[in-house]
Design a protein around this nucleic acid. Sequence first.
DNA 1: TACATTTAAATGTCTGACAATTTAAATGCA
DNA 2: TGCATTTAAATTGTCAGACATTTAAATGTA
Lengths: 242, 242
Amino acid sequence: MKIDPDNKADLSAQIAEAIREEIVAGRLIVDARLPSEAELADHFAVSRPTVREGLKRLAAQALIRTQRGANGGAFVNRLSYPEAYGQQITTATLLLSMNAISFDVACEARYALERACTQLAARRRTPDTLATMRAEIHRQSQPGLSDESFCASDVAYHRALVDSAGNPVLSYQLAGAVEAMQPLMNMITFTARSREAIVGLHIRIADGLERHDAEAAEDALTALEAYTLVLGRDVMAARAKS
Amino acid sequence: MKIDPDNKADLSAQIAEAIREEIVAGRLIVDARLPSEAELADHFAVSRPTVREGLKRLAAQALIRTQRGANGGAFVNRLSYPEAYGQQITTATLLLSMNAISFDVACEARYALERACTQLAARRRTPDTLATMRAEIHRQSQPGLSDESFCASDVAYHRALVDSAGNPVLSYQLAGAVEAMQPLMNMITFTARSREAIVGLHIRIADGLERHDAEAAEDALTALEAYTLVLGRDVMAARAKS
DNA sequence: TACATTTAAATGTCTGACAATTTAAATGCA
DNA sequence: TGCATTTAAATTGTCAGACATTTAAATGTA
């Protein structure tokens, strides 16, 4: 079934890996119950705490869930989209913050990915996703909005844009790119004029999608990318000076 | 510094979360040493095994690494691209296999993302990435190649295409989409005729990039998507019959 | 039958101990 | 003094056994 060589290093990692392989290979299917901790300890010839450490590793990746009590135990977890989003966002955020990714590179990646959705979104946008985008546009036009709220609304707007493509796999992929950019975007102080420009472009994108005009939406998105880049560079320049 | 409410559920998860927050907030920077397990146990008022379970959760996400011996301990890990790729691929693969994602949806997402790279790739392709693509095209033309090797070469070709865009964040995002598709692609049996068609399109894409002609490359990619879709549907139809 | 109680199984946590590993200090010697 | 060797200390890795907590099923009773 699953064995452990006499490699004496990192037993809990080996156990996690062995079980993970069973799962990805499909030998342990969703909602299947793993043997109890005591049985696993027996099977791998290790102690229960070691088994538990291995199981916690899998739990951290949302591969299993545990339930207490009789008939409890560890069960193979169906990786849901929200869980996958969460992991995607954490990983992408850390990757950006720990590897000195420049604003330009992150920005380019994000808008390239969003442009990938535009064609599909222009074809499939629903009244529902359009309404979400319009609602966020309205929020962004409020005068008293804080920079942070403006950013949050911006993220919501872009998520709605991505969701318009109607492809959950795309939405999942894009969630990381969009959300991971937020810390960088949050450093920007939005003036009334820059907000006006952004909202104007948001409207152009939404209008384009509503008319099923992919090219118009794409052009507006490209303009938004250029403008975001300028704002980001201003912030970086101001930071470098001080 | 970091506290733990009197919430008595899932202590190890709470500890992991507390430390994770310190890391993402930048209060624990890369290569910083965490307190020893004994100190953490003291601080959180739990036992050492509980602390260890929390630390293993973080280790599973490559957020920390541990070192034994004096001056050892747990250190904040720099999340490298290869590690991020790995997590991305595992997550994407499981998401696809566990959520009954159709071949069509996965295919659409993958090619939409790749198309996003094409514009950049046409501008920035280097002799190096072009050579990689040509080499894989050559491999794919060998007559005796197994289906599996053909698929592996296909993945390598598409990775080179993505890398041509010269944006590491894009490469990271796309790695998951491309590799997660491989199990689905592996179900396809490639006839000599279908291989010829695919290789022809691969050549058209490479030629387009070489000429800095983004439109030509994009067209060829769209044709490849359509053809992949047909092959996939044939497999699904044959499967449904048996 | 319906409801309350008991029992058993499983995870969650704690304590204490020992093994393995690595660094730094202490020691001994030329 | 200077260098090699030994020793000690700190830290993670692992183990054994125990108890607490939770949950569902089995049991008993009106």
